[in-house]
Design a protein around this nucleic acid. Structure first.
Lengths: 198, 198
DNA sequence: TAATAATTCGGACGTCCGTCCGATACAATT
DNA sequence: AATTGTATCGGACGGACGTCCGAATTATTA
């Protein structure tokens, strides 16, 4: 009867440890040995489950991306008024920043990693594209599907990422509460019917 | 008469090579040996001029920060109408992205590095703070110096950084020309007299 | 139960890294 | 010219890294 209690596949433990270590020290400073130790596993097992370092961190990126998209869609699944879109997403980012800054740092690190290593790029491109599409869909759905809507979503997303970067970098000077509350006001005006966004 | 032609201090050559290598491969993948080779200099000279790896890259960060601030201020030195502020800065970023994407990647990499290594953080914090202040000063100068102006500058800056990240990451899908032209329109509305930015 | 496959482990291999020492070349000063 | 200080070099040191092999263990199948 002591059947599958805590009987989680080793590969999952490794993946979780990799996320944790990565969020704590960043890609440039992390070593596979630390991850193996954190997971309570022999170093060689990382090579067994994920061919190599690149494979492991690709799995991390996939996991992080899936979870982010799921969380955003969960956040927006009962959205009625499209005017509530920006405030909700901004609040979502602020909440993430407050409660799990490590995961946001992890995301930023993976984005940076994707700038340099082509293997990671498609996955990160897809993540940004999916997020932008998710926002675009909810943006004045009764209007013509102008491309400017997609661009507006990209800009909004960019602003949130850029603000998060500044907030993590300088929590003393950058008060994220004020900032994140102000963002929707800036963008709400641009989402109005006067589509002067050519 | 073959006096001081090309007689540049070795430390400058190293710094320049470090910038170049860093913009090309990123911090996580670069080695001091590559930098020394690029500079045409013995490896030990890096340790001679800049105590260690950290010292060298700190110098790189200082150099990059100084140059960015100088360029932005040069760009805005003859600014008359504050309404032209956002378009100018946005165009500045777009131009940088088009003509020297490497330097923008270098900047993003250094920002990311500063997220993990405390030694770099104050310098990068100061860079963001200076840029935000520079924008804030030019933002409706005849109005009360509300803090919301500083926050607006931070958001604008964040948007440009976030857009640059997406554009470098996915040049295929992200058309930076459209995006950067649209940004000022979004923010112009927020800079209007109706200061509904609490 | 015997045989086969899938996991897990410890440990070693070769490589590359950042650091730094001792020697040499150059410049400046006396 | 002799001396002193600075600049430059080659090379070596210990260590950490990613990778991967061969054995041991566990699970699956026949």
């Amino acid at each position: 009867m002591t059947d599958r209690a805590e009987k989680r596949p080793q590969s999952d433990a490794i993946l979780e440890a990799a996320c944790h270590c990565l969020a704590q020290k960043g890609y440039a400073e992390i070593s596979l040995r630390e991850i193996a130790q954190k997971a309570g596993v022999a170093l060689s097992q990382l090579h067994y489950h994920y061919k190599n370092k690149q494979g492991l961190f690709l799995a991390v990126l996939r996991s992080v991306a899936d979870r982010y998209i799921a969380e955003i869609e969960e956040e927006l699944k009962d959205l009625r008024d499209s005017r509530a879109l920006f405030p909700r997403v901004a609040a979502f980012f602020q909440r993430k920043l407050d409660k799990e800054p490590g995961r946001l740092r992890l995301f930023l690190d993976l984005a940076n990693l994707s700038l340099w290593d082509e293997s990671f790029r498609p996955q990160m491109q897809a993540l940004f594209a999916d997020l932008a599409d998710t926002l675009e869909e909810r943006l004045l759905s009764e209007e013509d599907p102008d491309r400017s809507h997609h661009n507006l979503a990209r800009i909004f997303l960019g602003a949130l990422v850029g603000i998060s970067l500044q907030a993590i970098l300088d929590p003393q000077r950058v008060h994220n509460a004020e900032l994140f509350q102000m963002v929707p006001n800036v963008f709400q005006l641009a989402g109005s019917p006067n589509g002067s966004l050519s």
